[in-house]
């Protein structure tokens, strides 16, 4: 068999990227960012608050963490529900006792179903990030433009009915289409976090900001995918914080500068009784280092934007 000759054509082989969504730059060549209080490291805790309908949808794909057994999968339905009833409260308590404000990427269905949770998030000074409708609201490049537009629009409208206007959007599984950045702008979103290519925010050509929510450092990746212990998770995040803070500290004259440590937290994963203690100890260690500025995503973007001049 011979390959089609077109396979050796490279129409987008040129300086820069092979797409027109955003521009390339190396982090070390950018204007150094300084976070409030002169701290070298912005730490962004981002909790995922998710509602998994008992009947899962595979269009366009089934969300990570969704139902797995034959119907009715009470095992996973209730184990995920544990996140909204128990796990997230442990996380919110851990933050509030330490004076930390975070982001909560919330399915709008969670806000509608559990007003007490929405109220606690808002009154605690935390930030709500739109996270689609529910865990059946997945998006990818196979979805039609109309269907994708409908999901983003419906999410926006349902938040509006609750009197909340999230500025940021986090797609389920960080999955987007080529259209998504423009659709997010059209529906009034200022930023997203799904494009995991950097340790600082950056801007799409259409003006949308991306605050990279590192997937490798997520609790799902470290605890569920690699099956590490909670202590190993804490060690890995601690090592990341030390490195990033050191890199930022060494910035004078080298082009390095303030850095971002993004922590995606899933209440039914990190919020379990045998794991939460290691996470709380990690927070205490990060606080004691004196290197960390904890903030919601929007506040980090505001500081970064101001430093762009």
């Amino acid at each position: 068999m011979t390959l089609n000759p077109d396979y050796l054509d490279y129409p987008r082989r040129r300086e820069g990227y092979d797409h027109d969504l955003y521009d390339w730059s190396e982090i070390r060549n950018r204007a150094p960012v300084r976070w409030p209080g002169g701290r070298p490291l912005a730490v962004w805790p981002c909790i995922a608050a998710e509602f998994f309908p008992l009947t899962p949808s595979d269009t366009p794909f089934r969300a990570p963490g969704h139902m797995q057994t034959a119907f009715p999968d009470y095992r996973h339905y209730t184990a995920r529900d544990y996140g909204n009833r128990v796990g997230i409260w442990r996380l919110l308590d851990a933050f509030e006792v330490r004076g930390i404000r975070c982001s909560v990427a919330m399915n709008v269905a969670v806000a509608e179903r559990y007003p007490a949770l929405l109220e606690a998030v808002l009154s605690g000074g935390h930030e709500v990030l739109a996270h689609s409708t529910d865990m059946n609201g997945t998006i990818d490049g196979s979805l039609s433009a109309d269907a994708e537009n409908a999901i983003i629009g419906e999410t926006r409208a349902r938040w509006a009915a609750l009197g909340v206007a999230p500025k940021g959007w986090h797609s389920i599984a960080r999955s987007q289409s080529f259209r998504t950045p423009d659709l997010l702008r059209a529906h009034g979103f200022d930023w997203t976090c799904d494009w995991v290519n950097d340790d600082l925010p950056w801007r799409f050509r259409n003006g949308l900001v991306n605050l990279p929510l590192n997937h490798e450092l997520s609790d799902r990746q470290i605890l569920n995918v690699t099956q590490a212990s909670a202590d190993s998770y804490a060690t890995q995040i601690g090592d990341a914080a030390d490195w990033l803070a050191g890199e930022a500290d060494a910035s004078e004259g080298t082009g390095w500068g303030g850095r971002l440590l993004a922590l995606e937290l899933t209440p039914y994963i990190i919020g379990l009784p045998y794991r939460i203690g290691a996470f709380e100890a990690l927070l205490d260690r990060l606080i004691a280092s004196g290197q960390c500025w904890f903030a919601p995503g929007g506040a980090i973007i505001a500081e970064w934007s101001a430093a762009q001049g």
Binding site: W24, E26, S142, S175, H215, E216
Partner: peptide
């Protein structure tokens, strides 16, 4: 390619692509 898919997800595979892109923005110099 008839014998191998490049990406697990429909294009753009945002995590797959941007994870590799991290190399050329941050990881290489580090």
């Amino acid at each position: 390619h008839p014998r191998r898919k490049s990406w697990a997800r429909p294009h753009p595979d945002v995590v797959g692509y941007t994870h590799r892109d991290y190399a050329n923005r941050v990881g290489h110099t580090r």
